[in-house]
Design a protein around this nucleic acid. Structure first.
Lengths: 340, 340
DNA sequence: CTTGGCACTCTGTCCGTGCGAGTGCCAGCC
DNA sequence: GGCTGGCACTCGCACGGACAGAGTGCCAAG
């Protein structure tokens, strides 16, 4: 029906105007700023229907309309065209990310870039360890019975753990231990590292068995557990930009949720690399984020997802623009990490 | 003079009351809440003098007085007794920090602890690399002409760099390189690593010289430069606690300054481990922080300062409490890192 | 030097009013 | 049947005056 079509057009116009001006939008302004081809009175009728369907609402009688979470949802699902990045933005991405010297640097640049492109809070997850494979294990003695074990993964990540040995060890034992560990674990995915431990213990010479057991158990325990996944957050200053207008109470619960990295990590765990995932307002299970929206996507090469990244902002955000930016950055970071 | 004495007592009372209530404090309330032994009228006279001397000011005619930066400064320098931590707080420090598994974990716990104890934004600097010494260098081949160099310091810090070799290298060369680097740099302080490069080049076999030169230069360049020093920040949600009251405009400039880690790092560079350094309002060179105060101290063992930590908050903060917390945490972290 | 009293000066708040924006509804038109 | 112009109605908000309360500075007396 032409009716429904136009009604959706009205919704799109409302979302766009509200996002850019932050004022509830009325029928008259709508008719003026968009070529809808109908009079304000007609728009009013459409708006009444949209309100009844729950897509928009008015803050108080006699103010303009504001999109609801449901309205944004419809907008994101059916009304927003993919907004291609400007070439200036593409160049900015390359300029920003090239020349990074290590993983920490890559992720730090990524989060700053994303915050700058979207003018929102940006979040980047460290590559998930359990999907990485062991490239090399290094054992360094730091005290008579204390060893530092350093793990280097094929994603370029370096992890360290201090292990207290039950017995004193000498230099020869350290070298043997290093050789044994590398032989057993090199090329093994961390998620499967646990399976290798029995074999390793069988082949270990008797006098090293206790040491090997302690070290390998600690390794598997602490590294396979995804609890240690890390997060880089940037652009929190963007939260304070339209503060009072965007976040009714304070922005405190949001800052708290961001520091409580567990919350964000859980949300990140659902991403995949092929589609940009948008969560709007109340759709976020976590209460502190019920006034915010998240735009997330996975990054990594086609066959292997490494982690997630995205932005957090007010529900009143530029969804098409942010989705495009998040996707573009994820692609670039995926390539960057895949080739190293 | 008994006069001056009492006048300072009045200033102390004003600071204390204002910090705890956040309301400009008047002569009458002051006489009621503190045993100054004089009437409000007398206090008014003292307050007039204090105002003339620039220690307090009134937001508008006929409101109470509020301490100025200068007033806080006097309070901190001469009027605040060291407030010992409660035993509950001491226990909290131990419980919080014990059981950390690596450096990252220690610093993460430290920043959370400090934010929780002081209810301010906490900042912890990573141990400065240039004061550390090399414990071990590991070289891993990640592509035909690309190497990953991992540095392990005696402070338990692990740093990595990707180095592109001018020529393709084989496994034997990697092993030789590793041996050479460790021989040359083991035990050497990073700040002095540059001096060892000529020696290293002399002793290197001819066929490795190009490779050794590239790797060692990159190492020295990127690791000795203090620019890469890192910062852990936590408790930003505390900024939003009394927001409107504490920070006149918005808190945005402060969030920006915190993300602009360079600013904070510069401030941190001045700390030493023996005294707690307090910077109040305008005393901060950086404009964005002119409405905020910093309480910082260095941590590390007696003979070697590793880095700084501290808190950032409104000028209206509990200086004695925050100074005590910062000092106590720094001591504990210093011990923790010294023994590992 | 301290104290009580007093006049004065503000700010924040409350209330009443007017204005403007925006709506919903209705009758007429295509 | 859907669109349009007109019109009455409802609110929120900004403006302005009155008022109470807090706090001060000053002065004369103890």
């Amino acid at each position: 029906m032409a009716h429904d079509e136009r009604r959706l057009e009205v919704l799109r116009a409302i979302v766009q105007d509200f996002v850019s001006t932050n004022d509830p939008v009325g029928s008259k302004a709508l008719a003026e700023r968009h070529d809808l081809g109908v009079s304000p009175a007609t728009i009013r009728n459409d708006m009444a229907v949209l309100e009844e369907q729950g897509y928009i609402t008015q803050p108080h009688t006699s103010a303009g309309r504001v999109p609801t979470d449901k309205g944004y949802r419809l907008f994101v699902d059916r009304l927003s065209a993919v907004k291609p990045l400007s070439s200036a933005e593409r160049r900015a991405i390359e300029r920003f990310l090239d020349g990074a010297v290590d993983l920490h640097d890559v992720l730090g640049r990524t989060v700053r870039l994303l915050a700058q492109l979207t003018r929102q809070v940006a979040v980047v997850q460290y590559p998930t360890l359990s999907r990485s494979a062991v490239r090399h294990l290094e054992v360094v003695q730091v005290a008579a019975s204390r060893l530092l074990v350093v793990l280097i993964t094929d994603t370029g990540r370096v992890e360290q753990r201090v292990v207290d040995s039950p017995v004193e060890v000498d230099a020869g034992a350290v070298a043997d231990l290093r050789a044994l560990l590398n032989q057993a674990f090199a090329g093994v995915k961390l998620a499967e590292a646990g399976d290798k431990v029995p074999d390793l213990l069988d082949t270990a010479p008797a006098h090293l068995r206790g040491l090997v057991a302690t070290v390998s158990t600690t390794l598997v325990e602490t590294l396979v557990e995804p609890s240690e996944d890390r997060l880089v957050i940037g652009g929190t200053a963007n939260l304070a930009r339209g503060s009072a207008l965007d976040f009714p109470g304070t922005m405190r619960p949001i800052l708290e949720a961001l520091e409580e990295q567990v919350v964000v990590l859980r949300l990140m765990s659902e991403v995949d690399a092929s589609t940009v995932l948008v969560r709007i307002g109340e759709e976020n299970a976590h209460e502190a984020l019920s006034g915010a929206s998240l735009v997330t996507v996975g990054y990594g090469s086609a066959d292997r997802s490494l982690g997630g990244l995205g932005v957090v902002g007010p529900t009143r955000m530029d969804y098409p623009g942010n989705m495009a930016a998040v996707r573009a950055v994820a692609r670039y970071v995926g390539h960057l990490l895949a080739e190293s």
